[in-house]
Design a binder for these strands. Structure first.
Lengths: 265, 265
DNA sequence: ATGTCTTTGTGAACGCGTGCACAAAGATGG
DNA sequence: CCATCTTTGTGCACGCGTTCACAAAGACAT
């Protein structure tokens, strides 16, 4: 069976670096805002600050798309909006199915950011018969029995999984078998997909955990000078388990030696 | 004015690379699953496939934390769970406020992944008086007038913004002024924060746009073997050219871009 | 105790991404 | 038409992250 290759093995798609592709939507959003304010042109410096990136990076990113700027002037907003939209494939209609209409699925169904970017919610699918037919965000929920039919009839190639983690893999398998080749996964699971299928993962709790790490670091920095023996985090979890019959302390070494690798006595 | 520094300027926090920190929650999840199945030890190879990463990368990641493995055997699951939890700061309680209780905010309030990782939803805050007092996911919504009081009284340092884009920046400012130093932003805006405040952004439509890019590439590959740098694929769209005098026809739309910048063919 | 076998931990090479700094390009004014 | 000024596009260097490959370390059998 195909091992789930979620990560991208340095796939430089079409010569455009992956990091650049990830920033294009950012630029597009900033450009759209400018367009709505009828701003005709914008310099790389202005647009960069609006998008929250470095101006040199922005110019290099655009250079992968082509020479769409005018030296001494900047970039034509409308033209650039069109070029980026086209490069991202947003000039065409992308039907999307959302599977799992719980709290999150309902939120996604009503999310305005989808329709505004060329994505059309083709169907909402849930396994609960009680949900079937009930309109969510104006779209009637369909039962998961019809999943394959819906996908093939509407030519859906992008699926969003917002189910519990336990069923995410089988939902994924059915989506892929039915012809879906891109999946946005909100379930906290690593999905296994065959080659040729793209998976992107959004995990809300992971983001919070990363924030917690930095928050802890910040808190530790300001009080590390003092706070002598009180620095132990007072674990709310069980006592630190001994590493598998390690009777005496084998003297667990930290990476640099300054890290309290062992729990502070 | 403090320029919004959203991106991390190569901040190697505490000697642990940022990329490693971002993967720790992944390992933690896989380890927790093993722990629940009472698996005593796990090799780097097994854990790596469970987490969907390379085994060498996993070992190097763990090496930043310390030498927690046993050669010839592997890693003690319970011990590693504890160590990673401690490193991420999950052994302590993190009160979190969620601002903006719309569809998404409600979904976040009920998301189980928070509580299970040491995060406690301290308060739900919304600007709509009609929402005040109404329980969402068992927690009564409070009015945004009390935002500062709630944060200082509960010692909240992490805030989640799930408001419309238009008010995200002012909500952010109030959060920061009240003492919040980490923000998880779901609004499609670049937030400006002073130094020392961490911002992580989750943008649902950006993920979809990245998928669309790869989807388009896949579709293009199978149909046309050529497709040179000659960009004019002749779409039936309004105005590709005219980088300068693109006057008129681009009838702009409503508030926050609810129509594709270029109409689909 | 000694040898074998498994698995970790890490040195080193490589590739990607980032940012600097500057020359080329074009606009603009005289 | 020429000079000057602005801004793009990019060559280059550097640092981070990834991966390979292997020696060191410990378990286990004899």
């Amino acid at each position: 069976m195909a091992t789930g290759r979620t990560h991208r093995p340095a796939t430089r798609s079409r010569g455009i670096p992956e990091a650049t592709v990830a920033r294009l939507p950012l630029y597009l959003r900033a450009l759209t805002a400018l367009s709505e304010r009828s701003v005709p042109t914008v310099s790389s410096e202005e647009l960069a600050t609006a998008a929250g990136v470095n101006s040199a990076k922005l110019r290099k990113d655009f250079s992968y798309l082509g020479s769409y700027g005018t030296r001494g002037v900047g970039y034509d907003v409308e033209y650039l909006v069109y070029q980026i939209s086209r490069e991202l494939g947003l000039t065409q209609d992308w039907p999307v199915v959302i599977v799992g209409i719980g709290n999150l699925g309902a939120a996604l169904a009503g999310y305005g950011g989808f329709a505004s970017r060329g994505f059309r919610v083709a169907a909402l699918i849930d396994a609960d018969p009680a949900m079937t037919g009930r309109p969510v965000a104006g779209i009637p929920v369909q039962h998961s029995d019809d999943l394959e039919k819906i996908i093939s009839e509407d030519g859906v190639s992008i699926g969003v999984i917002a189910t519990p983690a336990g069923v995410a893999q089988q939902v994924c398998d059915r989506l892929v078998a039915a012809g879906v080749t891109s999946i946005l996964n909100f379930a906290p699971t690593v999905l296994s997909v065959p080659d040729g299928v793209d998976v992107r993962k959004v995990d809300l709790s992971i983001e919070l955990q990363i924030l917690a790490f930095h928050e802890q670091r910040k808190a530790g920095e300001e009080s590390s000078a003092e706070e002598g023996p009180d620095t132990d985090a007072e674990p709310a979890v069980a006592a630190p388990p001994a590493p598998r019959g390690a009777t005496g302390d084998t003297g667990r070494k930290g990476p640099d030696g300054d890290v309290p690798a062992v729990m502070p006595a």
